[in-house]
Amino acid sequence: MARLREVSRHVRSKQAGPFWVTMDIWFDGPGSFERYKASPALSPDVFGQLFGTDPALVKHIPVPELNLVKISYPRATPQGGILERDMHSGQQYVRLLDIELD
């Protein structure tokens, strides 16, 4: 099985307003994109477990023209709140890098 870091060109996370986080996964080519875009390892259930969010609210958007999968989910706490640990969500992607895709 390939790890996400091995089949992606770039992975990033960022805030998408005060209540949402977005992950962008650029695969290293059309072959990897087609093979892994719908991997169960990138499912709403996995994001729910990793980021403490309701899987029913996770959005999974493939963008074939860019070999990109965009995944958005609601933040566990609002941006800038007293429990905030990553104001701009720029470090959230790290949890995905070693996920094994099938």
Rank of each mutant, 00 (worst) to 15 (best):
A16G: 14
Y93L: 02
Q49E: 01
L50H: 06
L96R: 05
R85L: 12
L97K: 07
R5H: 05
A56Q: 12
Y73Q: 05
G17F: 12
E34L: 12
D98G: 12
P64F: 07
D86L: 04
D24N: 02
P40A: 14
D102F: 06
G90V: 06
G31C: 09
V69E: 00
P74N: 14
I71F: 00
V21N: 09
G80N: 08
S89A: 08
I82G: 08
L42G: 08
V46Y: 00
F19W: 15
K37I: 06
G81L: 04
P74E: 12
K70Y: 06
G81Y: 12
K59P: 00
D28C: 07
L42E: 06
A16C: 13
N67S: 11
S32Y: 10
P30G: 05
G90F: 00
D28T: 09
H10W: 10
F47Y: 07
F47W: 10
M1K: 15
V58N: 00
P55V: 11
F19L: 11
D45T: 07
S39G: 08
P30A: 10
I99V: 15
D102P: 15
K70S: 11
E6S: 04
Y73G: 01
A56P: 06
V21E: 10
D54S: 05
G90K: 09
D24K: 05
I82N: 13
D86T: 03
L4Q: 06
G81K: 07
G52F: 01
S39A: 14
K37N: 11
L50N: 05
Q92R: 12
T77F: 12
R95N: 09
I82Y: 13
V58I: 01
F27E: 07
R3E: 15
M1E: 14
T77A: 08
K70I: 09
L68Q: 10
Y36G: 03
D54R: 03
K59C: 01
V7K: 02
L42P: 05
G81P: 03
E65G: 14
F47A: 08
Y36H: 11
P40W: 15
I82H: 13
L42N: 03
L83R: 11
P44K: 05
A2T: 13
L66I: 07
P30R: 07
P62D: 04
K59A: 04
G29P: 04
L57N: 06
F27P: 03
D28A: 04
E34T: 02
G48D: 11
A16N: 13
R85A: 11
G52D: 03
N67P: 10
K59V: 03
P18L: 04
S72E: 14
M23Q: 14
L101D: 14
S39L: 09
K14V: 00
P55H: 07
D86S: 00
H88K: 07
G17W: 12
H88A: 00
T53W: 11
W20N: 09
W26R: 03
T77S: 01
R12K: 04
L96H: 02
L68N: 10
N67L: 03
E6D: 12
L4W: 04
S72Y: 13
S8R: 01
D98P: 12
P78S: 11
S8N: 03
V69D: 02
K37D: 01
L101G: 09
E34S: 08
P44M: 10
A41Y: 13
V11L: 00
P74L: 15
A41G: 06
S39F: 12
V21M: 04
L97G: 08
V7W: 06
S39N: 08
K37R: 15
